[in-house]
Computed example of a mutant assay.
Amino acid sequence: MEEKTFQRIKELTELQGTSGFEEDVRAYMKQKMEPLVDEIQYDGLGGIFGLKKASQDDPRVMVAAHMDEVGFMLTQIKDNGLFQVVPLGGWNPYVVSSQRFTLKTSKGNYPCISSSVSPHLLRGGSGQKQLEVTDVLFDAGFESKEEAESFGVRPGDSIVPLAETIKTANGKNIISKSWDNRYGCTLVLEALEALQNEKLGHTLIAGANVQEEVGLRGSKPSVHKFEPDLFFAVDCSAADDIQTKKGTYGHLGEGTLLRIYDPGMITLPRVREYLLDIASTHNIPYQYFVSKGGTDAGAAHTTNNGVPSTVIGVCGRYIHTHQTMFNIKDFEAAREMLIQVLKGLDKTTVNTIIYGK
């Protein structure tokens, strides 16, 4: 991996923006996309997309990451200065405690940690009860509700994981927060850079949605606004390879994910065949993927009059936590897949994918 790409990954994954609070990531995407596209446009919820325009008769192809990462919203300041929260996105409650976060308020950003019960305090009892995410309090060191409020803390503020992005000792993997889905944001920028001087056979609409982690909310307005003929989500999925690779999906180091099914979307046969042809032609490593979770493609494909949609993905271990591990070669395979997919799409190919002729 080039150092430039690693630094881009590091910058994007260390940015902090949970669902509904994506402004820092949006500003970064705007700055980096502007030199690479003809025009920047937004949807009404805050999704940002760069357009590389072709002729009016050419098809419209949309590539969408999502900017948001899992986090929390502060819902109540307790009398002792601690906070109750609700999760934004899916969290395993057993990875929430004793972690570092940033509390983002109108007056500034403050360090914050999630509470836990020390083992000393569990002695002599029956142990800790079944844990729910909402049982975990958050602590910014304020001594009272009044002191917290004097620093501008209010219900509705966001609390976002804080973590450094690093490489593993062998240089083959990266550890970071928010690879779901700063992976997609990185991929969009890398593809736009690679295609900057290419004449494409379609209008390309590439960027990132908001609020994916709370129910695929951002893709509906963006697809409605831009009316693509084809939709490609670029998103990260959960790896399942730490116990066995037999009968599981999502293995680090085995290539980009070719998602054939998830609870919200079936990849259409002609879309699948196009991806397989691209992978075969360009020797791109890939692995079939069946997911228990969805992506923006799940919402996009039933928007407007129906939009054939799929996912160009990678897997990561321990996603939706402070520390995700992902493989550099998987990312490079996904990048090559997206670039070659976009190069190969023109009116004839798109019509074949949609109509079979």
Rank of each mutant, 00 (worst) to 15 (best):
I166W: 12
F138T: 09
P269F: 02
E2L: 13
E22Y: 00
W91H: 11
T303A: 09
G306S: 08
M29T: 04
V290A: 11
L275M: 12
C315D: 09
T102C: 11
L162A: 11
S178H: 10
L162Q: 14
N283F: 04
V117C: 07
G17W: 00
S19G: 08
Q56M: 14
L121M: 15
Q287G: 02
F232T: 04
A54N: 12
E14G: 06
T5L: 15
G201W: 00
Q130D: 15
E190S: 10
L162I: 07
A239W: 02
V160N: 06
P308N: 06
S19E: 03
T102R: 13
N304Y: 08
P119T: 02
L345A: 01
G171N: 10
E132N: 15
M325A: 10
L82K: 15
V271A: 01
G90F: 06
E190L: 12
A279T: 06
T186Y: 05
H251P: 05
G171E: 11
F83N: 04
Q196T: 09
G17Q: 02
A299S: 13
F101I: 10
R335A: 12
T321F: 10
L216V: 03
L88P: 05
Y318W: 12
S115A: 14
E164R: 13
I113G: 13
S98V: 04
G255D: 00
G247I: 07
Y42W: 13
Q76R: 13
V188E: 00
N305I: 11
L131S: 08
N305Y: 13
N181Y: 02
V117E: 09
Q16N: 12
G201K: 01
V307W: 02
H282I: 04
N170D: 15
T102K: 10
L275H: 02
N173A: 13
K220E: 05
I284E: 03
D157Q: 04
A279L: 06
F151N: 06
Y94H: 15
G253A: 09
G46Y: 01
I174Y: 03
D57E: 15
T105S: 04
V311A: 08
P111T: 08
I319K: 02
I278E: 00
E149Q: 12
G247T: 03
S280E: 14
A206G: 03
Y42D: 14
V350K: 07
I159W: 01
Y318M: 11
S98G: 11
P87A: 09
N305H: 14
R8K: 15
R272W: 05
R123Q: 15
R335S: 13
V133I: 12
I278N: 01
M73Q: 09
D229T: 10
N305R: 14
P285L: 07
